[in-house]
Design a protein around this nucleic acid. Structure first.
Length: 938
DNA sequence: GAGTTTGAAACT
DNA sequence: CAGTTTCAAACTC
């Protein structure tokens, strides 16, 4: 199947490209110079019905990582080369059509199919670019599904800049009609990729709501994509790059947006999730992406065969992948804007997309094919939650060499903790102090993911210099402080649509008073939030992980005053931020309460799942600069570590339920003088509220046993008194959480004692490398849970909560060393089932015996010597004696019981009984006939 | 709520 | 690795 899909994908891609070529030819004939820029945008539909929030399984790619091998990439390259030849050929429509006809037959793709739409800006003067497989990775998942609908979207690409070197290109861009006819291919474009200068690729992956919403539903709003050729990528990756894109597509259902960019060095950087429902603005200041060269974008929305049971309201995940290959002549400072026209320009499906060059003079002089860079799709990895976006970003940008990464399918595992993979790009590891991560994540998952990624990368040729380390590896990330202006709105659309708002008027909670707040309404967990702002570009990425396994990437759109904020406007500050992800074993509620009183540093708290999240940062944080900030894991907490250092914590630790957040706000209001306690709690599937105890201002919180609004039992606050909450005695610490709202004394399990905490973590890990891993794991057999270490109970009989096994509601296993254990698995259930089965079988046998007996009785009655005829021939009804009737009724009853036993429906039972009755009648008649026959001679 | 019990974690 | 101590949660009153 995988191979089949792969072939289908290739074929689809081929067809699509040919079709696109044909359309481009038709649209731009005469105006488009040979080798002119070409832009194609494709959006793919992904049925949300199959992909519920958090249901990553739907996103699971059936094909292995080796599905798209280098040879297949070669094929793609060849296809591209063919297209190039076609470009240079006049009057190829017929051929193209033939190609389309031939290649488009019965193309079936998975329900979750991703195709890459390529915006290619071919180089006019630099045609010597080698044709290499660029970012085109149709990602096909699940079973093959025939595409029924294909909605086309128009993408308008315009270069407002009068300085555009090639007027023809402008003209071409103005001509935005790409009305490629119906396609029978379902593509799920999960990424929008713009490649500039032959080496820069921006991938914007934006799942959108249902296709209806995308194509016809008014809910789909035009989106702006401002591609900033700026230095965002480069800054993030620590390498020079000319590409910067901030996109904010919105996903209504399975919100996973992946925005990646490939720097000039060929590094792939995930920039931000795209929200198709929301304006996406990218500003290319460096001009590396020249939209002038982009002739068109052909958005394609594919609708899978899955019956559209829902209206627009039903969410269909639509991924838009746009690959923009622009020929840039090295001119910088040309803003490029890719925006969907809000005017509602409809293109076949009515999804308008505009690509507007921001007046830069840069020209895209790079042929799409010419780019040596190859396929890039790590979206699935993220979507599956296997590869945290943060990690992805870290990995991709880190490799200095041009890299092609294909991550078709990583390990699909329930993603309890968003960040399960610790990847350390060598280049990104800078001088920031090493942080020991408790990272009590599922080691298996992590390892698999890492391996998968590594293998995937390696399969492409090992061009990626990515260092993937298993969990517990220290992760160093330097994030430079940028400017996050108040009034910035980070818009993310998850299933509920989330908005991180940094109102300009919003009061800063921090002591500095300039700290903006990021409010993240909605109950989703943000896997990470990346705030990237630089002179060149700003990228804010919010990755949200829903409660479900699905890893959701929420696009964050920096908007000022409701309008897109020019990312370039943000200034860059060179404060380094240390990211210290502490991955809990599970998506436990994490709460981080930064106490910033008197501290010069700032902290940013981004609750993972809190409906309302506040991100508070010190005055310095307000200027959190994206330049160096690649990503901030959701619920990331940035705390000052030194004058310019910040420690960023994963979102899990800072999630907060909305009500709690509100309560905290109220408390904070009441305690304005304190201004130190900010609580962001995050709820998780299995854990409660994280708690951080502050000796100074911590409000005394008693044991909270009440359930959260979502029904999740909040985590109990600890009561540590002597351990400083830096020993595994402390549950908070053991769970990799910060203490918050605890009753502990002299707590060091907080941000203020990060060094001590890290030291303690290190110590614990030295004693037990698995100290922070979940104690309860799955047994060898099946999904049976078992205590990894086992209990050692002596007196409790393992029937009290002293016993960890009993507390976890799992029977003791062989790992346990308990004495007098009574916490044994009851096998009565199985016996009961067996007994029931046996009883049922016996019953059936009994019923069968009864039926046979009755039948025999009937036979006996039938062949009983007839009574002396009393004036007339014995008719069949004469056999309807009381005995026969009784026997018949018994047969019918037996049949009814049988039907009941089989749990048959009423209709079936009736049918059985009637049939039985029919057989009885037949028997009676036959008996009568035989009796008649026998009596005839007589 | 105080005191006791219990077992894991830490220590020797 | 085993024994002891420490610790905090669970439990009892």
């Amino acid at each position: 199947m995988a191979r089949h899909l792969s072939s289908a994908a290739l074929l689809a891609l081929r067809k699509w490209r040919l079709d696109d070529e044909l359309q481009c030819r038709k649209s731009y004939r005469g105006t488009k110079p040979p080798g002119g820029a070409r832009a194609v945008v494709e959006t793919l539909g992904l049925d949300a019905g199959a992909l519920g929030d958090g249901d990553l399984s739907a996103l699971t790619l059936p094909h292995n990582s080796d599905q798209f091998t280098s040879s297949e990439l070669e094929t793609l390259v060849n296809i591209q080369a063919e297209l190039d030849r076609l470009n240079s050929t006049v009057g190829v429509e017929g051929t193209l059509e033939e190609e389309l006809e031939g290649g488009g037959d019965s193309l079936t793709v998975g329900e979750t199919v991703e195709s890459v739409v390529t915006v290619v800006s071919e180089d006019h003067g630099q045609g010597d670019v080698a044709h290499s497989p660029e970012a085109i990775l149709p990602e096909i998942t699940e079973e093959t599904t025939t595409v029924e609908d294909m909605d086309m979207h128009e993408i308008e690409m315009s270069t407002p800049s009068p300085e555009t070197g090639d007027p023809l290109q402008q003209q071409e861009i103005s001509a935005k009609q790409f009305t490629s006819g119906s396609n029978n291919l379902t593509f799920t474009s999960s990424t929008v990729t713009s490649k500039t200068t032959g080496s820069s690729i921006v991938v914007i992956q934006s799942p959108v709501s249902s296709s209806a919403s995308v194509t016809t539903s008014p809910s789909f709003t035009p989106k702006h994509v401002t591609v900033s050729a700026g230095q965002l990528v480069g800054k993030i990756a620590g390498i020079s790059s000319n590409v910067a894109i901030s996109s904010v597509p919105q996903f209504q259902s399975l919100a996973q947006t992946l925005v990646t960019a490939k720097s000039a060095d060929g590094n792939i950087v995930q920039l931000r999730p795209a929200n198709l429902n929301r304006p996406v603005i990218a500003t290319s200041t460096a001009g590396s992406l020249t939209t002038a060269n982009l002739q068109g974008i052909k958005p394609l929305q594919a609708t899978t065969k899955r019956p559209a049971t829902g209206t627009a309201g039903q969410m269909r995940n639509v991924f838009a992948k746009v690959i923009i290959t622009g020929n840039q002549q090295g001119q910088q400072g040309q803003p490029v804007m890719l925006a969907t026209s809000q005017a509602g320009e409809t293109f076949c499906g009515g999804q308008p997309i505009k690509i507007i060059s921001g007046g830069g003079t840069g020209q895209s002089n790079v042929s799409l094919l010419g780019s040596p860079t190859k396929a890039i799709t790590l979206a699935q990895a993220q979507q599956m939650g296997l590869l945290s976006p943060a990690k992805l970003q870290q990995i991709l940008p880190s490799s200095p060499a041009k890299q092609s990464i294909i991550v078709n399918k990583l390990v699909s595992s329930p993603v309890k903790s968003p960040a399960k993979i610790t990847m350390m790009p060598a280049s990104t590891l800078v001088k920031s102090p090493t942080k020991i991560l408790p990272a009590p994540v599922s080691g298996v998952t992590q390892l698999k993911s890492a391996v998968s990624i590594a293998s995937a990368v390696g399969g492409i040729g090992g061009a990626v210099n990515t260092t993937v380390k298993p969990l517990l590896s220290p992760q160093k990330v330097i994030i430079r402080q940028g400017s996050l202006k108040p009034g910035t709105i980070l818009t993310s659309s998850g299933g509920t649509g989330q908005v991180i708002r940094i109102p300009a008027t919003q009061n800063v909670v921090g002591t500095s008073g300039n700290i903006p707040q990021l409010q993240v309404p909605g109950g989703r967990q943000f896997q990470y939030v990346r705030l990237v702002s630089s002179s060149g570009s700003n990228t804010s990425t919010v990755l949200s992980t829903g409660k479900s396994r699905a890893t959701t990437v929420l696009p964050v759109n920096a908007v000022s005053g409701g309008k897109p904020i020019a990312l370039a406007a943000m200034r860059t500050q060179q404060q380094a931020v240390k990211m210290v992800p502490i991955a809990p074993a599970t998506t436990a509620v994490r709460t981080v309460v930064p106490k910033s009183a008197g501290q010069t540093g700032q902290r940013i708290l981004i609750p993972a799942s809190a409906p309302v999240t506040q991100l508070r940062a010190g005055s310095n944080v307000s200027a959190l600069s994206p330049t160096a900030v690649n990503q901030i894991t959701s619920g990331t907490t940035i705390l000052p570590s030194g004058a310019s250092s910040y420690v960023m914590l994963p979102a899990q630790y800072v999630q907060q339920l909305q009500n709690q957040s509100q309560q905290q706000q109220q408390q904070s209001q009441q305690q304005q003088s304190v201004l130190n306690t900010h609580t962001v709690s995050q709820s998780s599937s299995n854990s409660g509220i994280g708690a951080e105890s502050h000796n100074q201002s911590r409000p005394s919180v008693g044991t909270r046993t009440t359930l959260e609004p979502n029904g999740i039992r909040p985590r109990k606050p600890c009561n540590c008194t002597k351990s400083q909450c830096l020993k595994l005695y402390c549950d908070c610490f053991a769970n990799g959480e910060f203490c918050h709202m605890c009753n502990c004394n002299n707590c060091f399990n907080n941000l203020e004692h990060e060094e001590d905490r890290q030291r303690a973590i290190k110590s614990c890990l030295e004693r037990n490398p698995n100290a922070f891993r979940p104690k309860i794991g799955k047994g060898i057999v099946g999904d049976e849970r078992r205590h990894n270490k086992g209990c050692n109970c002596k007196r409790s009989g393992c029937l009290k909560n002293y016993c960890e096994c009993y507390e976890a509601k799992i029977p003791c296993s062989n790992n346990c060393k308990c004495v007098g254990c009574r916490n044994v698995e009851e096998s009565c259930d199985k016996n009961t089932l067996r007994d029931l089965a046996e009883a049922a079988e016996v019953r059936v046998q009994q019923q069968t015996a009864i039926k046979n007996k009755l039948s025999a009785q009937i036979q006996d009655i039938a062949f009983r010597p007839p009574p002396p005829p009393q004036g007339g021939t014995r008719q069949p009804f004469n056999f309807m004696t009381q005995e026969v009737l009784n026997a018949t009724c018994l047969c019918l009853l037996a049949q009814a019981e049988e039907a009941e036993r089989l749990d048959s429906s009423e209709e079936e039972a009736e049918r059985f009984i009637i049939e039985e009755f029919g057989r009885c009648l037949v028997q009676i008649i036959e008996c009568a006939t035989k009796t008649e026959a026998n009596s005839m001679p007589m």
